[in-house]
Amino acid sequence: MHKGKGMKFVGDSRISAERKPNIPKDYSEYPGRTEAFWPNFLLKEWLVGAVFLVGFLSLTVAHPSPLEGMADPTNAAIYHCRIGTSCFYTNY
């Protein structure tokens, strides 16, 4: 990347006048510390999954899913709102 003296900008902005494609390089161009997917990485992934599952089950145990009374089309007492009617904004 060109820095310092001789840099060209678009107008009076800080955007470089030099245009280049904004496509990230493939990771094969960054040889680094890779890890075998099977089984090393997958097992670590499942550790995260186990922590997630504990949190998720805590949620389900702490908050049982709600079930209201059986559907009754004639009982629109609090659910009488239709799109385009003023009650859409004064529900409950």
């Binding site: 990771y27 960054y30 890779t34 890890e35 075998a36």
Partner: peptide
Amino acid sequence: ADHEVPEHVN
């Protein structure tokens, strides 16, 4: 099974 997980996603 054989693919490697690159460093930057680990």
